[in-house]
Write a protein that binds this DNA or RNA. Structure first.
Lengths: 204, 204, 204, 204
DNA sequence: AATGAATGAGACTTCATTCAT
DNA sequence: TATGAATGAAGTCTCATTCAT
């Protein structure tokens, strides 16, 4: 875990190390980036890096923690009573907001890297699983709230499907090259499809 | 004359190296697996490993090639005129077969590892992109065949959506723990949802 | 401020590595000397060796460069107007000085090793050729200056002969065991012979 | 030492191995040529190579032995009573023949490689020293015969000088690029110079 | 004899981490 | 605290040599 440096310069250094590390991890990949490289590009000595981070994995852990916090912040906007009501009244708007939150979440750029590390680094897997669980649960809660407690078994299946399809849509929007027109069309078509699925499975 | 058995032994050795390597890559991760480890667990000397593979990346390349071939074999069963007709007449059956092919494809277990390597290893990225393209194209062709050449722009968007959702469903079935009952329910619900999307976008 | 002593230690370490390497190359031979051996005998870790030199060949390159500089320093004393005049007035003295410079050139002990490497290592060949060219050219310039521009074609042949015989004499003095009496006699006889050749070819 | 294979095919194989090895040693360098490479290019299996040669150095040893024999054959033509007489009557012709013998000696192309190996491989050094000794001795004998036992001390010095200058001339003719015109001029000028030296030191 | 697949010691090199200043 | 030279375990790969066929 990161020490709590009280001095501003220290904080700035930690910041620089983390930013540089994330940048390099994104450009290349965790295993091929060296600690000396991080220190050099962050403009600190390798010794300094190691006074703030116990080892290479601690840097990754700090980054994961930040990613986790950032996700939670973003998610808090969606996981509210107001959101439940919106789901009930305007599913398309609700889906649009959820997707935009996930897409725009600054740190979500880090998502792929975490997926890649999930297998090799336990901490990464934990974060990944926690987030999946949260989104899945949100979908589940919304449906539950909407139906006033309908058939739970079907709901579990439905929320899994909705979760999978939603994140697939988010990944398509994030990681594939599209013109902004195409992107809009895909986003809209995806939302329509998801709405269709939800309505067909819950209504009546 | 003595050559056949020799070649067979050589082939068996290469097989063992590749199997071991894949196994280790799956358990751990390409970057943390060492060539000596592969050789040791494959029961060959490090020298032998290097008489069959130029370097560590060549092992990965061979594995990727096999994965590619395996994918092509599996895919050939789906990419036929008969398949186009099935799509027209019974979308649920068609989707079920596609999903089962992808799920059962022996080598598809290697899929996640390739996604992880896609960023770091060009060969992995190529394989990944080629396969995505093929599936996406299949969906596109089927829809095109079905509509006798309807609005192509919408088709492009639709096939992207169908592709994304289908692979998301396959990944859910492959990589998440479920009881076989849950699995069946998710599979069926996914197929129903995909059918719904297709019909709503093409019919009328 | 703390930098100077650090740099000095670094310099000393590089010096020790180079000295050890040269020593080992002279005792044995470049191809059979290992980087770990150099590091061990220089009293540094293998890691340290590689922070100062990119690879084994870089050590050789540094040694070649030093040899080159040392040669140039030595040669500057001979390649002067004063030297041209001496050549005109007292060829024996001139030849004696040239030979002594080449023999005493501290680094010339490295000469044979470079000849050996010339075939295998381009950098070694370049150094060797550059030095030959310089000596050959000096002889040529001296003769030219002496004759005020006589028959150039003959001069070219003559300076080649003088160069070859002079370096052969230097090698004999350097690499063959002799009593100092023998050495003096050979040196003197060689100088006399060279003088004889020059005078017979230029005078009258 | 090479086994004495009685069968022709075996002999031919040894021949091919030796020829290939020499070729490769000349192109590259002993230390960078591998035994597998020799076997491959000689068209024999590595196993066969090792049935005829105990190890890599044994190949070199055989080559050195051949070089030695070849030198002795060539030299026998020069080291005769007739030669002594020629030396007395026509030094230029005598020198010309000696130089041509050394230059044309097919195996002399191997000379540089041996010089390079002399430091690292004792057998190479021995051959080199033996040959030097023989040439030096020939010059000495000729002078001795010519003077009917003049001042021996001076003769030793003289023969050293003549030997050094002669081999320097041979090396120049062998290893430097020249037009055949230049080559002839250098050869002639070298012979003239050597003659001059001999006559000045012995006659009167 | 001949083969060439197999061996493994050991070469070169990297990089996470330490520690004296 | 900050530094960065120094460390050396460990990784990738080569190649002289062996041995079962």
């Amino acid at each position: 875990m990161t020490k709590q440096p009280t001095q501003q310069r220290a904080r700035a250094k930690v910041r620089r190390i983390l930013d540089t590390a994330k940048q390099l991890f994104l450009e290349g990949n965790y295993f091929e980036v060296t600690t000396n490289q991080i220190a050099r590009e962050a403009g600190v000595s390798i010794g300094t890096l190691y006074t703030y981070f116990a080892d290479k994995e601690a840097i990754l852990a700090a980054l994961l923690e930040e990613y986790d916090e950032s996700f939670n912040d973003v998610f808090a906007h969606v996981d509210t009573q107001e959101s439940f009501n919106l789901f009930r009244n305007d599913k398309k708007e609700w889906l649009g907001r959820l997707i935009d939150q996930l897409v725009n979440s600054e740190d979500r750029q880090f998502h792929l890297q975490i997926e890649m590390l999930a297998r090799a680094v336990p901490a990464a897997r934990q974060v990944q699983e926690r987030h999946s669980e949260r989104i899945k649960d949100l979908v589940h809660q919304c449906c539950l709230y909407y139906t006033n407690g309908g058939d739970v078994k079907n709901l579990k299946t439905l929320s899994t499907i909705i979760f999978d399809f939603t994140t697939a849509l988010v990944d398509e929007l994030l990681y594939t090259d599209h013109t902004s027109q195409e992107r809009d069309r895909i986003r809209q078509s995806g939302i329509d499809s998801l709405t269709l699925i939800i309505e067909r499975n819950i209504d009546q």
